[in-house]
């Protein structure tokens, strides 16, 4: 199960992108996400794709890993493509069968939507492929810190996110162990009919949820027993450092935004 879930896992290749301050990567990702949503033309999307590939190459992680990251969403992407093809009408008729016809506008809208989703998922996977959950957490806290005056609890939020990120693989492992225990006693999900599969998956919910609560309780007790307290002054083992590389990295994304906006106006 974990083997299939690539997003959220660090792949350390020691590239320059890995070494960047996570705040820079997070800012860049936000800019990228906004641009992907705002891009309304083929040239803009192609420009974004080219930029994505360039940054992905810089991470030294094989491109197929980014493609793999989109795999869990392939059914949703196909669904969106079909819905757009069926719902959007206009332009020239590409295929006709009786009263139904596929229009060029529908196909274009479908491909747009799928491309956007693919770009967004594969490229944002770059953030988790190149940054450890601890660093991500630290970056989130750093970025939220200025909003503390407005009543946003930065430390609390980053702690919650950090724990949630750490819990995803742990809970998946727990579910997998229970599935193994069920399989070893004659209820292998792969060999069961669909009805049996559904029943076994439902049976997983209770022990996995109970297990997650137990883990959470153990974790809080362990943190409290070692003196953790929200709001207590605390130094960082590895303080975040914003250097010239980070400025260039974010600068490149700002430039990309300007190019995409310029394409949009022309």
């Amino acid at each position: 199960m974990r083997e299939k879930l690539l997003i959220g896992r660090l792949i350390d290749t020691g590239s320059p992108v890995h070494r960047l301050d996570p705040r820079a990567k997070m800012t860049a990702m936000l800019l990228y996400a906004v641009m992907v949503m705002a891009a309304r033309s083929w040239p803009a999307l192609l420009c974004l794709t080219a930029f994505s590939v360039l940054i992905m190459i810089l991470t030294r992680i094989p491109l197929r890993m980014y493609l793999k990251a989109t795999r869990p969403l392939r059914v949703l992407m196909l669904f969106i493509l079909i819905v757009q093809c069926l719902a959007v009408k206009g332009g020239s008729v590409l295929v006709a069968a009786g009263s139904w016809h596929l229009d060029s506008a529908g196909l274009a809208a479908g491909v747009y939507a799928v491309m956007r989703m693919g770009l967004l998922v594969s490229f944002t996977a770059m953030l988790t492929f190149t940054t450890s959950p601890g660093q991500l957490n630290q970056a989130l806290e750093g970025m939220l810190r200025p909003f503390e005056r407005a009543g946003i609890p930065a430390e609390r939020l980053s702690l919650m996110t950090g724990i949630a990120l750490r819990f995803i693989p742990a809970i998946l492992d727990e579910a997998q162990t229970i599935m193994k225990a069920q399989a070893s006693r004659g209820a292998d999900l792969k060999e069961l009919p669909w009805k049996g599969k559904a029943r076994m998956l439902t049976a997983l919910l209770v022990p996995v949820t109970v297990g997650a609560f137990r883990r959470a309780e153990d974790l809080t007790a362990s943190m409290e027993s070692r003196g953790y307290r929200i709001g207590a002054p605390r130094t960082r083992y590895r303080p975040l450092v914003w250097g010239q590389g980070e400025t260039w990295f974010v600068g490149a994304f700002v430039l990309m935004c300007l190019v995409v906006i310029w394409i949009g106006f022309n």
């Binding site: 070893s184 006693r185 004659g186 022990p207």
Partner: peptide
Amino acid sequence: LASLRRRVGLVFQFPEQQLFAATLEEDLIF
């Protein structure tokens, strides 16, 4: 693999993750 698993009983390393039914009896008869 069902016939293999009937004849090879495996006790995992962490028993708390191996028990999943609502009662111990249900788990044992599973």
